[in-house]
Simulated assay, not measured.
Amino acid sequence: MAARREVEITGLHVSPVHAFEGRPLDGPRPDPGPVAHDRVAVRAGLGLVGDRYFNHPAHRNAAVTFIAAESLAPWPVDPLVARRNVVLRGFDVDAVARGTVFSLDSGDGPVRFEVHRPASPCAWMDAVIAPGAFKALRGKGGVRCVPLDDGLLRIGRAVLALTGT
């Protein structure tokens, strides 16, 4: 039986470009438009529609990134500065083992994701969050997943179910 819990999706980030290129001291590139969304479309095996990793061959098993809102709590910043696609409150995504499958249902039906690897932080975290954030986020940078279903995710309350490995 699946372990279920209520969580909150506090951020959804979709950007067609990389903002963290070059040297952190030079600052991030500006996004071409809004990256925060109230809802995002998920496509099985491809990622989030409109995101820079959507259907990107090198990122098929890592197209959607998740981070726990609690990992960013020490800093009074917008949680989307970490540039993870989905920010979840109420679930320690970093504690989930590789190969684990979980689903998120934010009101439009469950969407399953398989965890493939950690989303390790980079030196950019010191530039966009605060000095020392890069080191502090080691082991708390989130996870990279592949979506297993088509669906929709929305900001707000959701039900997360661990469905297995």
Rank of each mutant, 00 (worst) to 15 (best):
M1Q: 12
G156V: 11
F113N: 06
P76T: 14
P74V: 12
V143F: 00
F134V: 06
P24V: 12
S71E: 04
H59F: 13
P57W: 07
H18P: 01
V81A: 03
E8L: 15
D78K: 01
I9V: 15
E114S: 13
A68M: 07
R23W: 04
D51W: 11
P24D: 05
F66G: 13
P110H: 08
P131N: 04
F102T: 12
L148C: 06
V101M: 05
S15M: 11
A58E: 15
V128T: 12
N55V: 00
V14A: 12
A69K: 13
F91V: 15
D105R: 03
V146R: 15
N55T: 00
G27A: 13
P74I: 10
M1N: 10
P110C: 08
A123N: 00
H37Y: 05
G47I: 10
M1P: 09
G132D: 03
H56K: 15
G22T: 10
A41M: 01
F20H: 13
N61S: 09
G99H: 05
C122K: 03
D126R: 01
D126A: 09
D92A: 14
G22I: 06
G99P: 04
A44E: 10
D26Y: 05
V93S: 03
G107F: 02
S106P: 00
R98E: 13
G142L: 03
C122T: 11
G50E: 08
V81M: 02
P32W: 07
L162H: 09
D92C: 08
P32Y: 09
D108E: 15
E6Q: 14
D108N: 13
I67W: 01
L72C: 08
G33K: 09
K135C: 01
K140Q: 09
L88G: 05
L160M: 14
L48A: 04
G151A: 07
D78E: 13
R23I: 02
R89S: 15
G90Q: 06
S103C: 04
R23T: 11
H116W: 13
E8K: 15
P24H: 10
V115M: 05
D105T: 11
D78Y: 04
P110E: 13
G164L: 06
K135D: 06
S71K: 03
V35R: 12
V111F: 00
R154A: 14
A130W: 02
M125W: 02
D26P: 02
R117P: 00
A69I: 10
R84A: 11
V81Y: 00
D108Q: 14
G22R: 04
A82T: 14
F20D: 14
V49G: 01
A19Q: 15
A3Y: 06
A130G: 08
T65M: 08
C145W: 01
K140A: 12
P34D: 10
E21N: 07
R84Q: 10
E21C: 05
R23E: 13
M125P: 02
P110T: 11
S103M: 02
F20P: 01
A58S: 15
L12I: 12
G132F: 01
R89L: 12
G90D: 03
V111G: 02
A19K: 14
R52H: 04
I9H: 05
P76S: 14
R144K: 10
P131D: 07
